[in-house]
Nucleic acid binder design. Structure first.
Lengths: 226, 226, 226, 226
DNA sequence: CTCTAAGCGAGACGGTACGTCCCGTCTTCCT
DNA sequence: AGGAAGACGGGACGTACCGTCTCGCTTAGAG
């Protein structure tokens, strides 16, 4: 996919790539310093050594600029193969948490999400730039686990499949985000292990064929010892 | 400590309780209409039929006003006894989700949380007003389940106990919030059921005595059919 | 004229004379400190150790309060008989200037006059409280000079008489005020003497019967030496 | 000193001269309509068809704006040569009074002066913008009269000279201002003539060599008839 | 010698204007 | 054409006073 864009006009002086990078850096730095609410275009521009005009030539408003700057941070999320489902989950939990604990991400993610609650375009923007990117990791991990025989293969209905992936994604991302940003407690190895244990057992049940799942409630905690 | 509650000696004209209520209502209504970002003190005041100064006499700024207005919404969260752990979990998930889906909560919660990422006082405010209030529900549900024999009694170490409650809280609240606000998908009965199933199995494992928890990873999905 | 007021009601607690005095003092002190523009009722009240209500119970607004406080200062103006018209003029000039140089008067007079330029009621108030009181001194001095034979007796027309008194008053008060407040130079003995000399010669001409007055322009300065 | 006046290197969008003029006009109009006390920046801005910020970009506060607007009015003061000292004095008196009677000047001058009583910078501002400009007229008139032989040439001491000019200035300006603003009576031809007569005789005496001036007090009013 | 109408301190109230900050747009000149 | 500089129209901010309005307490004179 080299360049489907139909020749984007090449007249006049080209945009400075240097400016671009400086702006991204300045935006992230400013987010750390003052947060979304007090972040001003003027300050970003000044810090980047650039005129305000230059910002507006690239992004239509504050929101877009910040989302753009934040989204890039999510690119580094990866899912190294640790050989087991448990290992993979713990890995992603810890690496996701590590990212969220960096102040620029911390401050930015929630700010951007909050802004999105009454801005559908921004919400779509976030979905593309952040959510889908992360969801891909869940899929990848699941496939590996299935290959290893740790999880049953895909259900018949692809719709049901997607629902399951979405659920797992919301549980993992939700728990990590909530602990980091709302409870404001660190996601350390201990927490990651406990969470993984919880998830792992749930996963097995959730992935099992329908009609069996609700067994948990009756079985009680004596279940395992039988 | 000479006087236990010495009648705070109110002098001068007392604050109007009417105004207080009108402001809270106006704030929530305004949040629905325009969202956090465009909510203005002037508009809230006008809508409440009150002078802007009256707002500032009670709350030092927009943030505090909104947190206050939003926090009250969390008071209505309850945990009706549905007779089983599964029922209780589904109940709280759905009622929490229902609350989050109401536009005023939707817009406000994240906004307020986002604001808190660089405002420790606000963060403490949130913890008191919202987080602790919710955590209480988790405790309550767990006690009921223990009484019913659905979950094992408290672990020996109270520290470990607290860790577990915190974990469960982050998982429930996180998943619901994430699905509602980030994934922007509805929390319907179907999702609540699937989530509950997942959580239920995880819960049993997580609540079990240490040293057994990690069994899940090896056992695989064939576990149940053995 | 002992009390034409038809018994001004004597029920209830009478107004505190102490408060009255404290308010007047506080007002004048505040005028010195911050000037009219920044003088606030709250500050005057606080400084007088009195509630704002107490101020408004006595004067309907800031303007009236200040005029009242300032007018009292003019009461002390007197015209001691120095035995000659020249002496009397120098005396009044210096004592008037001395009053104007006191910071509370300095700041207040112009402020009040300025305020009066678009407030006819206040203007009338000033005329009664300040202007007429001063004009009386001019009349008194003139009568003494006439008695001494330094000035001709009143003209036939009383209207013309009044015009003359007004003119003299405007010249004296105007010159002193202008030097003090606009030119912002001190009215010392030297200036007072020079001004008196100027006025004295003018006075003789102005007081002379009509039809002769314009002689000055032709006569030139050689006039006296002839 | 490499560059004597290096072309101040104007960068960025220049200030709109149109806006400048509109603001001055609006300020003067507003002064007439509502007076100093009720003049608001918002109203001036609206009337000028300009944003409030544009006002504050040019003047730091209401006071400076108004002084600036008013000072310009004094530019039109001139001293047309009427051929005689008497004529010149009457001319300047009447044209000065005419200016003061215009409502915008009326309201503004005193307000600005009042404000200056506790603001040394403003006072200096006024001196430069208004007082010095007027004093120049006195000098000019005196020189003409000296050339015509109506007044004696400058005294030996230049210091004494300056004192005399200042005195005359305070008398003329003071009398006109006082009559207009404090006594609140019109300066008509009749008053101007009477005042001029008074001043003219005083002038001759005051301009005469020292040691003779005080003669007036003894001579009495019979002086002229001898 | 009580009763009671007014005075009083305190401070909340509805308002108006302030002067500031930032937004996103627009000129102007320079590269 | 891009970019730096900065003025512009606009909107909201949070503050400061205004003059009014409860409150509950105090106080002196009328009954």
């Amino acid at each position: 996919m080299p360049s489907p864009a139909p020749t984007p006009r090449r007249v006049g002086r080209p945009r400075s790539a240097q400016a671009d990078a400086a702006i991204m850096d300045a935006t992230r730095a400013a987010l750390v310093e003052v947060g979304w609410g007090k972040l001003t275009m003027g300050y970003v521009a000044a810090r980047a050594g650039v005129a305000k005009t230059t910002l507006y030539r690239r992004w239509p408003n504050k929101g877009e600029l910040v989302v753009h700057a934040v989204a890039a941070l999510f690119d580094e999320l990866e899912l190294p193969d640790r050989g087991s489902l448990r290992g993979d989950i713990e890995g992603v939990v810890i690496s996701f948490a590590r990212m969220l604990q960096r102040p620029e991400t911390n401050a930015s993610l929630m700010a951007v999400v909050a802004e999105s609650t009454h801005d559908p375009l921004l919400r779509e923007h976030i979905r593309e730039a952040i959510v889908d990117r992360q969801k891909h990791l869940v899929l990848q991990g699941r496939e590996r686990a299935q290959a290893r025989g740790e999880l049953p293969p895909d259900a018949a209905s692809s719709e049901e499949n997607e629902r399951l992936v979405d659920l797992i994604f919301d549980v993992i991302a939700g728990a990590v985000v909530h602990r980091t940003l709302v409870s404001a407690e660190p996601v350390d190895e201990q927490w990651a292990e406990a969470f993984t244990t919880l998830l792992l057992h749930g996963l097995v049940a959730a992935s099992a064929p329908r009609g069996r799942g609700e067994g948990g409630s009756e079985g009680g905690y004596q279940d395992g010892s039988a």
